[in-house]
Nucleic acid binder design. Sequence first.
DNA 1: TGACGCATTATACTCTATGTATAATTACAT
DNA 2: ATGTAATTATACATAGAGTATAATGCGTCA
Lengths: 217, 217
Amino acid sequence: MTPRPYSPVNRRRAVDAGRDRILDAALQLLQRDFAAFSLDAVARKAGITRMTVYNQFGSKAGLLEELFDQLVTRGAFADMPAVFAEPDPGDALELFVEILGRFYSENRSVLSRMRAAAGSDPDLDEAMRKRNERRRRGIETLVQRLDPRQRPSVPDGELVNTLDVLLSFNTFDSLAGPERTPSDVAQLVRRLVRGVLGGRNPGPLRTRPKKRGSRRK
Amino acid sequence: MTPRPYSPVNRRRAVDAGRDRILDAALQLLQRDFAAFSLDAVARKAGITRMTVYNQFGSKAGLLEELFDQLVTRGAFADMPAVFAEPDPGDALELFVEILGRFYSENRSVLSRMRAAAGSDPDLDEAMRKRNERRRRGIETLVQRLDPRQRPSVPDGELVNTLDVLLSFNTFDSLAGPERTPSDVAQLVRRLVRGVLGGRNPGPLRTRPKKRGSRRK
DNA sequence: TGACGCATTATACTCTATGTATAATTACAT
DNA sequence: ATGTAATTATACATAGAGTATAATGCGTCA
């Protein structure tokens, strides 16, 4: 009945190493060719059995979730604290854009594959949604710090939504291309953000507003 | 050797009716519950055999492609000619946003499902990409019509890319929500577009630019 | 009417993939 | 040596896409 003491430290270590090898295998497969990505392929690449993957991660969605979290805890996101330490909200936003841009371009292929996988897996979809919430909350915080008198004439909620779209992986992914480097994209997005923040009810789209008469064609 | 003449008009009619019933069934399944969407389910709902679906559409991707095309030829896109007939390029863009917004919200659930399906189907992915190209070309045309002196200080290529992102289904889908009607979203996107077009190198993001000295922190 | 063209059906496969179940094995801990 | 827990081997179940083939049904045309 009373279980005897058992603290398998080395054991844990070995198991964790195994987890990492699985995550690495998954990462590589997602980077190289998405088509070849399956739990079976991951297991083979990691040199273990498919059953072990289920043991450790429960499901495909579980594996991808943990992989995402691992990507976040390393790399570009390391600089995130600086964003919220930055006293000027404008600068903070600039930095935020920059960090997100770096994160997106560092992990572009993987994120692209994950988005795809989430499309046909409700669990994973929900998980990714939750993680996007974090970004949104970050934006909310930054927006609230903006000087009220300088805020554009949109309700805060809509402002947050708009910024959230502009700072999404989708936007970066669409804007990035062969001849547009990650920093180019970040610059472009910064310009968009400025347009949203600075543009207080810009006029209508008519490009030649006051040329009298002469409705051509 | 010489095939004898054969013009099965009534036959064609019956077959086409069958195709429409399949497309309808697919549409309804995609609208109601995506999880239940499979060629088997479509066939059952249409009252025919799965083999017939393959006969008519070749594959799942083929079915979805034709479904998309059918959505485009009806509904909101009917007003598209007016966009390019509109002499003022600014007004044309406004109208373009409006029509796209209507199309996206009319078919939101279906488009969302299709995007998901395209994620795990390279064929469909390519097909959707091709169809997005059309929108892009439309934007290109409209941008070229803009008065050069009024164009923002960005190269045309980047301007087109940016607009393309803003007018994508993704943007609308992200911005739409429970308390934001389609026309609200269209308005929001129009504002974004204005920001891009009108905003000629807006200043940096700092919100309190000239408060002398006092670089806090 | 009878033969032909062609779409549909019924049936039976093949593949790939996720996920579950279970007993045996292995590695570590005490 | 014995308990603990992860891993493995193996077998199934389920689901979906796609292919193959023979039979059937239905317009079409001579």
